[in-house]
Design a protein around this nucleic acid. Sequence first.
DNA 1: CCTTGCACCTCACGTAACGTGAGGAATTAC
DNA 2: GTAATTCCTCACGTTACGTGAGGTGCAAGG
Lengths: 265, 265
Amino acid sequence: MRNYTAFVATNTIPNSQMKTMTPPPWKVGELAGRTGMSVRALHHYDEIGLLTPTLRTPSGHRLYQQSDVERLQQVQSLRLMGIPLDEVRRLLDGAGLSPREVIALHIAKLHEHIALQNRLAERLQGLAEHLDTVESASIDDLCQIIQVTTAMEKYFTTEQLEVLRDRRSSITEEHMHEVRDSWNEIIPKVRNAMSANVDPASPEILAIAKRWKALVEEFTGGDPKIAMAVKTMYEHEGPSLQQHLGEVPTQEMFVYMGKAFAAMK
Amino acid sequence: MRNYTAFVATNTIPNSQMKTMTPPPWKVGELAGRTGMSVRALHHYDEIGLLTPTLRTPSGHRLYQQSDVERLQQVQSLRLMGIPLDEVRRLLDGAGLSPREVIALHIAKLHEHIALQNRLAERLQGLAEHLDTVESASIDDLCQIIQVTTAMEKYFTTEQLEVLRDRRSSITEEHMHEVRDSWNEIIPKVRNAMSANVDPASPEILAIAKRWKALVEEFTGGDPKIAMAVKTMYEHEGPSLQQHLGEVPTQEMFVYMGKAFAAMK
DNA sequence: CCTTGCACCTCACGTAACGTGAGGAATTAC
DNA sequence: GTAATTCCTCACGTTACGTGAGGTGCAAGG
């Protein structure tokens, strides 16, 4: 190992004084090895002006002094806290915000980010559970489920969704098919009756109204808020839901059946 | 608005049949507007081969058919779940892993990521609390605190750290200074005694041992595990901690004081 | 027919923090 | 003296687009 005193100091110094001098500067590889960073990272810090070694050999090799090492340790500390290099530089150069503010800002950002990730994780978890109850796992099915669940997230509160999820997990797939078939059977009948101007209070409509009510009751668990949310969702998302869920009642049908319900009492 | 049937179909079709034909394809802007995506995103999807419109006008304008729109919806669904475009393409093209596996993998990744973020948030929170108890908030202080706390994370369990944090928050800053001053007073004495080969059982060392024990007791709250962890940490991180905490006992001192403790009984 | 204005096209750079070579000079080791 | 490291400087790749720049297509008004 050489020492680089020759071009650090301009005059010659006897060996007896060498020991009290500043320690020899480090080359990148050495600094990298001792600090656990990569050489490329140090190059990068130099490039962006975050950590420029105070010395270079005449041939261009970087030499890091004690002060540089200290700065690097500061950089490492702040990076450990997830602070971007840009802000690390601003902090160390004394420009911009105070440490307190930077930390507070970062905490806020982090919490926001974590909340997003958590919501995503919940969605994925629900999706996974759904995939495990259905044996057909085609991409189309997958996308349909995603579409429907994301649409539902817009109209239901978190607790309502949990209620629905709990109930769904306690229901057999066979039964879910039955329910869908029932809707697919009922809705065309209602549509026909409406276009034929059948009186909502007529006996055949009242019979249908009974089945309708039972189906709604079963899905909503009797919660009128969930029923309202479902109605709102159908009104807004009808066309796109139709592709995925099969037949879906329109707003006019709700009105029509409302009359039937009134006549039932 | 034109229709692009001219180059979609090769033969002329009477108007009466036009209505039963496939709907007119959409241009990028229209598709973007209806799906809430940006035009650039659609261009990007085209570039990477994720969604290539089946048609183009002779002048090069993109035309999206029904099938393209469906594919886009699938892409949107999967992206909503945070799946990278690369895997979305593999999924939709039927190559690679099954939906189940992809979802499971992503859940695992997400949880890992969330755990990391949470640990980071905890660190930042602790840092912020610390910053609020100390009024001097220089960058150097900040980095020192980070260094010390990250070093501590390596040697203490989570519960131990919480205990320490709780206790620290109930202690005044003034008192912390007193403690530090006490250490700074005691340690040189011990060092001197050791180099002078003073008997650990001598009365002056026993007096120091008492103070030493009290200080350790106070910091560790009497928990021998915490005491052990502190000792291990000092042994491993001594030199770097010394810069930040002031005087720190060496392993030899622990041994020496151990003899004094034995003589105290 | 010509212009105006809007939607569209294709580059191509920028983002964060480096990883990963490529090709060549300098240093160190034997 | 030569071989093996270590160092240097480009420069592209990573994610999912944003943001112009500069040029064409196309429907409508004068």
